[in-house]
């Protein structure tokens, strides 16, 4: 039983990070209808920027949590600027282009950002100093650290704040209007370009937080870390119903738990034929199954046949 609880905790920590990154994908998709393939690289830049800032701040002798917070506060504006630049360089000029053209520029941007990061931060893996207490607490036989609790709580708070922003503020209303129809929104006096730029900036800020969380939780950062994470987060966004903010959260948490349970129990389920090497197969299989029965994801609205 304690093993099962431990697997659920593992899944929730992983899922919180997926969910934060997935939000970036889903917001951009909701508004522009395109996959921002470079989003994973923003997460990577957030992690590495925070790490550099922390490296400078540690000798100052401040307490650990303050240093991490300072690193985060430096990483957020940097990522916002990167997100803004991505939109300007790779997406805005292609607003009216065929649907797949921005996909290619996104892939191009992803390669460019990765190579620039490699030039800036080098090829080696970087380690995140142990600034936050990592000693495990015992919960019904399972272990959880302070850091992991902070990650889950922060992710939950950020998602709640985002939901509030989208449903309760003027800006959120403008975002929803733009997602519905950019041309009509423009007629209603919405500055569509600004709203789209803001969406990118907001998603990038969340990516920065996710990047710092990943780096702190796994104590590791590397210029190639963004791609796989981005892919998983994108999968999570689709699982929940892409374009739907609540769906991204649900999808992220669910994917984390599915992966965790998959690795833990797939061997027992298949009588030892399949092992934890089929963890990703299991995750994708669940995704395909969900999409076969709910073609727009778990929380996605049913789109009319005429898209």
């Amino acid at each position: 039983m304690d093993i099962f609880i431990q697997q659920i905790i593992n899944g929730l920590v992983l899922g919180s990070i997926y969910a934060l990154v997935a939000l970036g994908y889903t917001m951009v998709y909701g508004i522009l209808g395109l996959i921002n393939f470079a989003h994973g690289e923003v997460v990577m830049i957030g992690a590495l920027t925070a790490l550099t800032a922390i490296g400078v701040l540690v000798p100052a002798g401040l307490p650990g949590p303050v240093v991490v917070l300072a690193g985060l506060l430096i990483a957020i504006p940097v990522c916002m600027a990167v997100g803004f630049a991505i939109e300007r360089v790779a997406y805005r000029p292609l607003r009216n282009a065929p649907r797949l053209a921005p996909l290619i520029t996104a892939i191009g941007m992803s390669i460019v950002l990765q190579q620039l990061a490699m030039i800036a931060w080098g090829r080696n893996y970087h380690t995140f100093p142990a600034l936050l207490p990592a000693l495990p607490h015992r919960v019904m036989g399972a272990a959880i650290t302070d850091l992991q609790i902070i990650i889950v709580v922060t992710a939950a708070l950020l998602m709640a704040a985002l939901l509030w922003l989208i449903t309760r503020t003027r800006l959120g209303r403008a975002m929803r209007a733009t997602a519905e129809s950019p041309s009509v929104a423009r007629l209603m006096g919405v500055d569509v370009d600004r709203v789209i730029a803001f969406t990118f900036v907001l998603g990038s800020a969340l990516a920065a937080v996710a990047g710092v969380m990943v780096a702190a939780n796994y104590s590791i950062a590397h210029y190639a870390m963004g791609f796989m994470l981005g892919l998983k987060a994108f999968t999570a966004a689709v699982l929940g119903g892409i374009g739907n903010v609540g769906g991204a959260m649900l999808g992220g948490l669910l994917l984390g738990v599915i992966e965790s349970l998959g690795a833990g129990y797939i061997g027992d389920l298949t009588g030892g034929f399949l092992g934890s090497h089929y963890q990703d197969v299991f995750a994708f299989f669940v995704l395909i199954l969900v999409l076969v029965f709910r073609p727009s994801g778990l929380m996605g609205e049913k789109v009319a046949e005429r898209a």
């Binding site: 360089v89 065929p98 053209a101 290619i104 390669i111 460019v112």
Partner: peptide, 18 residues
């Protein structure tokens, strides 16, 4: 790889339909 990425972006910006 950097130039390859830049080429992808540039070509699609200049000729969005390929």
């Amino acid at each position: 790889l950097l130039l390859f990425g830049i080429a992808l972006v540039l070509v699609m910006r200049l000729r969005p339909a390929g």
